[in-house]
C-alpha cells in the first residue's frame, strides 16, 4: 500500500485498525525493557542518587514535546500547501499529545529540581523554554476550541503552527541569552552536557518507548477525530434534510 493511499480517510481507518495492536504491543515491550534498564541496570548518580532516574521520563518527554510541534508543522504545510485531507486531522490529534508530553516534561523537571535546587521551579533556560512551548501549545488548543468548523480551524491553526515553528528557535535563543545574562553558568543543567554510556542506553530505549507510545496515541486520536468529523457531517446532513422536508 503506497503512502498516498492512506490519504483516503477510509483506507486510513482500516490501516489504523490493523496497525494499532502491533504498535501498542511494541510500545509495551519497549517500555518493559526501558523501565527494567532504568530501574535495575542504570547506576545511581554519585551526586544526585536515585533522582537521576527521573531523567528517563523527563528527557524523552521533552524530545517528544518538541517532536510533536515538528510533526504539526509538517502537517500544517500539508494543510496549507497540499490540502491533504488527513493533514489537519494529524495536527488536531498531535496538539494535545504534544502538550501532554511537554507538561510531563515540566512536572518531572520540577520534581527533579526540588532536591537539586530546593525549589520546585527555578527559571532555568531549558525548562523555561519548555514552559514557553507549553504556553504555545495551550494557545493552539484554545484556537482549535474557538472555531466550530474543523476545516476552517485547521487552516487557522496551521498558520499559527508555522509561525510558532519559526519563532520557537528564536524564543529558545532569547531565553538562553536572558538566562546567561542573569545567571552565570554555575547552574546545574538538567540532562547535562555529557552523559555516561551506562545511562545513555536506557535513555535511548526509553526514548524509543515514548516514541512508540506517541505513535499509538496519535493513531488512535486520528481515528477518533475522523469518526468525530463523520458524526458531525452526518448531523449537519440531518439538519439539512429536515430543512428540505
Amino acid at each position: 500500500m503506497a503512502l498516498i493511499d492512506l490519504a483516503n480517510p477510509t483506507r486510513f481507518l482500516a490501516f489504523a485498525e490493523r496497525a494499532l495492536p502491533w504498535l501498542a504491543g511494541a510500545a509495551a515491550a519497549a517500555f518493559a525493557a526501558g523501565l527494567y534498564l532504568a530501574w535495575f541496570v542504570a547506576p545511581d548518580d554519585y551526586q544526585q542518587g536515585a533522582t537521576v532516574k527521573i531523567m528517563f521520563v523527563h528527557v524523552p518527554a521533552a524530545w517528544l514535546g518538541m517532536a510533536a510541534w515538528a510533526l504539526m508543522s509538517l502537517a500544517a504545510l500539508g494543510t496549507l500547501v497540499w490540502r491533504h485531507p488527513l493533514a489537519d486531522v494529524a495536527a488536531r490529534s498531535a496538539a494535545p499529545i504534544g502538550a501532554a508530553f511537554t507538561f510531563l516534561c515540566l512536572v518531572t523537571g520540577a520534581l527533579w529540581g526540588r532536591p537539586m535546587w530546593g525549589a520546585y521551579w527555578v527559571w532555568d533556560a531549558r525548562l523555561t523554554s519548555m514552559l514557553v512551548l507549553f504556553l504555545m501549545y495551550l494557545g493552539l488548543l484554545a484556537l482549535w476550541r474557538a472555531v466550530e468548523d474543523p476545516a476552517r480551524a485547521g487552516r487557522l491553526v496551521a498558520v499559527l503552527t508555522l509561525v510558532g515553528a519559526i519563532n520557537l528557535p528564536i524564543i529558545k535563543f532569547s531565553v538562553d541569552w536572558w538566562n546567561t545574562l542573569h545567571q552565570p553558568a554555575s547552574v546545574f543543567r538538567l540532562g547535562g552536557p555529557t552523559i555516561d554510556p551506562s545511562l545513555l542506553w536506557p535513555l535511548m530505549v526509553m526514548a524509543l518507548a515514548f516514541t512508540l507510545l506517541f505513535a499509538v496515541v496519535q493513531l488512535a486520536a486520528m481515528r477518533n477525530e475522523i469518526l468525530r468529523r463523520r458524526v458531525r457531517a452526518l448531523r449537519i446532513m440531518q439538519a439539512q434534510a429536515a430543512q428540505r422536508a
Partner: peptide, 26 residues
C-alpha cells in the same frame, strides 16, 4: 466549544510567565 472558561487561566499563566523575563529570574 467557543466558550471562554479556560482562556482566563491561560492568560493568567502567560502573564505570570512573562514577569521573570522582565525582572530577571532572581
Amino acid at each position: 466549544i467557543g466558550g471562554g472558561a479556560l482562556m482566563g487561566v491561560l492568560f493568567f499563566l502567560a502573564v505570570v510567565t512573562l514577569v521573570p523575563f522582565a525582572v530577571g529570574p532572581d
